[in-house]
Simulated assay, not measured.
Amino acid sequence: MKKAISTQAAPGAIGPYSQGIALQNMIYTSGQLPIDPKSGDMPKTIEEQTKQSLENVKAILEEAGSTLKNVVKTTVFLSDMNNFAKMNEVYSQYFDQAYPARSAVEVARLPKDALVEIEVIAYK
């Protein structure tokens, strides 16, 4: 049976979806925008936004009883592929080898005009 994951330590859903779903021993997060859950603000730079998106992912995983060490797949959405290297610098600080499998794609636009959005699949 699937279970919705919800935490105040990450921004609330802005539509009809859950922050994450746990199914058996797997966790699927929704894409996390770089919104500070306390202030509702979004940082300006790609580095700060990447960090905040990953902190939001981390909070959801922890609420579900998991950690970033258990992430097996990430998807990174970028509004500009020219930000890839700077995003990657911050991203690499959050994961150890063996790194998760990853897709990184440029999209035309992200909600709230964010520069990055990140979703993950992890296990408990």
Score class of each variant (00 low, 15 high):
Thr74Leu: 12
Val72Asn: 09
Ala4Asp: 14
Lys44Phe: 08
Val120Arg: 08
Lys51Val: 02
Pro11Glu: 09
Lys58His: 07
Gln97Thr: 12
Ala104Leu: 11
Thr29Cys: 03
Ile21Cys: 09
Leu33Met: 12
Met81Lys: 15
Gln97Ser: 14
Thr7Pro: 02
Glu62Gly: 00
Asn83Met: 13
Ile118Val: 14
Pro37Glu: 00
Lys38His: 04
Tyr123Lys: 12
Asp36Glu: 11
Leu110Val: 04
Asn70Asp: 15
Asp96Leu: 04
Thr50Phe: 08
Arg109Glu: 07
Ala13Asp: 01
Ala98Pro: 10
Leu115Ser: 12
Pro34Tyr: 08
Lys58Trp: 00
Ala13Glu: 09
Gln52Phe: 01
Lys73Glu: 07
Val72His: 04
Glu63Ala: 15
Ser18Phe: 05
Gln19Ile: 06
Asp113Glu: 14
Ala85Cys: 03
Lys44Asn: 11
Ala9Glu: 10
Leu110Asp: 02
Gln93Glu: 07
Glu89Arg: 15
Gln8Val: 09
Tyr99Leu: 13
Lys51His: 06
Pro43Gly: 12
Leu54Val: 05
Tyr123Pro: 00
Ser79Phe: 07
Ala9Ser: 11
Glu55Lys: 15
Thr45Leu: 09
Pro43Lys: 15
Val120Tyr: 11
Gln52Cys: 05
Lys44Met: 11
Gly31Pro: 08
Ile118Arg: 01
Ile118Trp: 05
Lys86Glu: 13
Pro11Lys: 05
Ile27Gly: 02
Tyr28Thr: 05
Ala10Met: 01
Leu23Lys: 05
Val90Leu: 09
Glu89Gly: 06
Thr67Phe: 06
Leu115Phe: 10
Pro111Asn: 09
Val72Asp: 06
Gly40Ser: 01
Glu63His: 05
Glu89Ile: 14
Thr7Met: 06
Lys3Arg: 13
Gln93Leu: 09
Leu23Ile: 15
Lys69Cys: 01
Ala98Gly: 08
Leu78Phe: 13
Phe95Ile: 08
Lys3Trp: 04
Lys69Leu: 01
Leu23Arg: 01
Thr29Glu: 09
Gly20Tyr: 00
Gln19Leu: 07
Ile121Arg: 08
Ser103Cys: 07
Gln52Thr: 14
Ile35Ser: 08
Lys44Val: 15
Asp36Pro: 06
Phe77Gly: 04
Val105Arg: 13
Ala22Trp: 00
Gln93Cys: 01
Tyr17Phe: 15
Ala85Asn: 11
Gln19Thr: 02
Ile46Ser: 05
Asp96Gly: 07
Ala22Ser: 11
Met42Gly: 14
Asp96Cys: 02
Lys2Gln: 04
Gln49Ile: 10
Pro16Trp: 03
Tyr17Met: 04
Asp96Glu: 13
Thr74Pro: 00
Lys2Gly: 01
Asn83Leu: 15
Ser92Val: 00
Arg109Cys: 04
